[in-house]
């Protein structure tokens, strides 16, 4: 889990760097300022995602300016495994025992919707996950509720239901194996997996 978490953030960093490099190609001179980096800055630790005890400040701009998205062939070259390892789709995080999308969760879902509208062949499965507290039985239901909430939001944003499937994994696959508030916060999530493109 640790390895995976680290790797996927390396992926995000790589992706961000790739975006910036792309930006450099498209526009010169490149406005390479980390503060305006479209993706959230990864922390240096092993569990960078969402330790949102307090919600982070609102992102200044949409996640990736449309003209800066990787061209289709950039993603087309990659296998599904590679694409998911360095996924352009963000996790949507939830509060304790909650399946409601707060401001931050809505922004993440909107960013994912933008990507999916740009790549109309992509089909995703939204995995609903829970933290380790609570029983495995009930958490299966809670994970489903989270996946469905994220799915509903994406459908409202114009995505076809057939492109956004859901599955609940309950508390079976924590993103962070830790046993503290930060780990639990990053484990209560809807995780987007690209299943075909």
């Amino acid at each position: 889990m640790q390895v995976r978490g680290t790797r996927s953030w390396i992926g995000v960093v790589t992706f961000a760097v790739a975006m910036l490099a792309l930006q450099a190609c498209v526009r010169k001179p490149p406005p390479v300022t980390p503060e305006t980096s479209p993706l959230p800055p990864p922390a240096s630790g092993e569990r960078p995602a969402a330790r949102p005890v307090t919600p982070p400040p609102p992102a200044p701009t949409p996640v990736v300016p449309p003209e800066l998205l990787a061209p289709e062939d950039e993603f087309a070259r990659r296998t599904l495994e590679e694409l998911n390892r360095e996924s352009p789709l963000e996790a949507v995080f939830f509060g304790l025992d909650s399946a409601e999308l707060d401001e931050r969760a809505q922004r993440a879902a909107e960013a994912n919707a933008d990507v999916l509208l740009r790549f109309p062949n992509w089909v995703v499965t939204i995995e609903g996950h829970c933290d380790e507290r609570g029983t495995p039985e009930y958490n299966l239901g809670l994970g489903e509720r989270r996946a469905l909430a994220a799915q509903r939001y994406l459908i409202q944003l114009g995505l076809a239901e057939s492109r956004v499937r859901t599955v609940s994994y309950g508390k079976e696959f924590p993103f962070d194996p830790g046993h503290d508030d930060a780990a639990w916060a990053s484990n209560r999530r809807a995780h987007f997996v690209i299943t075909s493109k």
């Binding site: 889990m1 390895v3 995976r4 790797r7 599904l80 495994e81 998911n84 390892r85 079976e172 696959f173 995780h191 997996v193 690209i194 299943t195």
Partner: peptide
């Protein structure tokens, strides 16, 4: 599957 390092049960 498409996501790595998930233990089976």
């Amino acid at each position: 599957g498409l996501v790595e390092d998930r233990p089976v049960k």
